[in-house]
Nucleic acid binder design. Sequence first.
RNA 1: GGAGAUAACCGGACGGUUGCGUCGCAUUAAAACGACGAGGAAAGUCCGAACACCACAGGACAGAAUGCCGGCUAACUACCGGUGAAGGCGACUUCAAGGAAAGUGCAACAGAAAUAAACCGCCGCUUUUGCGGUAAGGGUGGAAAGGUGAGGUAAGAGCUCACACGGCCCUACGGUAACGCGGGGCGCUAUGUAAACCCCAUUCGGUGCAAGAUUGAGGGAUAUAGAUUGUCCGUCUUCCCUCUCCCAUCGCUUGAACCGUAAGGUAACUUACGGUCUAGACAGAUAACCGUCCUCGACAGAAUUCGGCUUACAGGUUACUCUCACC
RNA 2: GUCCCUAUGGUCAAGCGGUUAAGACACCACCCUUUCACGGUGGAAUCUCGGGUUCGAGUCCCGAUAGGGAUA
Length: 110
Amino acid sequence: MLSKSYRLRARGSFSYVRAHGAKVGGKLISFVALKGNCKRIGFVVSNKIGKAVRRNLVKRRMRGVVRELLPRLSCGQMIFIAKPGVTELSYAEIKTRMTTLLVKAGYLSL
RNA sequence: GGAGAUAACCGGACGGUUGCGUCGCAUUAAAACGACGAGGAAAGUCCGAACACCACAGGACAGAAUGCCGGCUAACUACCGGUGAAGGCGACUUCAAGGAAAGUGCAACAGAAAUAAACCGCCGCUUUUGCGGUAAGGGUGGAAAGGUGAGGUAAGAGCUCACACGGCCCUACGGUAACGCGGGGCGCUAUGUAAACCCCAUUCGGUGCAAGAUUGAGGGAUAUAGAUUGUCCGUCUUCCCUCUCCCAUCGCUUGAACCGUAAGGUAACUUACGGUCUAGACAGAUAACCGUCCUCGACAGAAUUCGGCUUACAGGUUACUCUCACC
RNA sequence: GUCCCUAUGGUCAAGCGGUUAAGACACCACCCUUUCACGGUGGAAUCUCGGGUUCGAGUCCCGAUAGGGAUA
């Protein structure tokens, strides 16, 4: 789990980032980001993905990936959006998909 | 071995590294350390309450719910025990189970006729066409004017009689009661449906923690307006509206709590004693990786809190019934 | 979280407890036509599921399932 300072929390900033940020689409996970001073990461896992147990599992796995990659991330507000079918993926698959998205968007420094 | 039925319980275990939420300890603040950290259904939101606000929580009508008896409970339509009815060989299961001589409505098709008698039939008279009597028999239907037997009659009919038949009324005994089980009387008129309207009895004010509490500013209003009910009556009042603003704190977890023992009770449950503190978030905490073992792990994630109900559930354990084979 | 509504052929749908569940579009088969279209005839429904009330439920009552909506 991320500590509070690295989480994107306010409702307004979610809609602001989704309106103005740069989007990178993926098959099962999408990514929206906006450059800024601090690192803030949010996750969207809607009702369509599954019941509460599956949604929580997806969220936890995505958070775990972000925690591993956190020191290499550049600053900005980022949102990961999960799509139906993501529950079939294992942790390793989610990790590879998210790293490719971050590399495409240019937020991951090697 | 096969088939079945109900209830109760369990719901992978252990270890390591990194990481998260709350609390404690400290502090300007953090880090570090320690403790705790999802369920039997947390789910559906189908009932019932606590708690909060609506001035008071008043009356009448309307509306809604419930409806055998007794118990239990903070409360309930729940739960427990019994009665009756229906189903099953049985273990056992199901039942909104008051009132149809207060009134209204409905009962398709079939059938002569559906709450009302005469199609066929039977009998008498007349005579081969009618009139009268009849409810035994036929056929239709879910239901056809109590059933069976005997007497009786022109033929028949509770017209009369009998019943270890039914109904109604009175009554002895058992039971707290529903009711059960006997006795006597009444020839007996009375179809079904109230999960159709309705009648009777009992209960119910509304909204829901996104309830609500903690500020400031602006505007409106003196009899309008308002006081969270569908209508009316009664009563009361200076307050009402908008924005800041749904941002923060509180509400928020010690509670009709849980565990154990004993006693009472068939049981639901109650009482006494002892012990425990056991999630409290607000984009919302349980994850990732590795190792060992086994039967290889289902349904599923707290959001104000409790008591029930309903639904989902891999596999396993215990108790029960019927049947087959063998000893 | 709280609170509502709906479910009838493939689709849109009507249906006062009572005959074989009314229609429209689409589909299939046959007829008509030299052929296609138009037209005609016929077919196709476990009334979402499970119980109950009733002589008899698509309809009334209870429970479930699925879908949709309001609020913030």
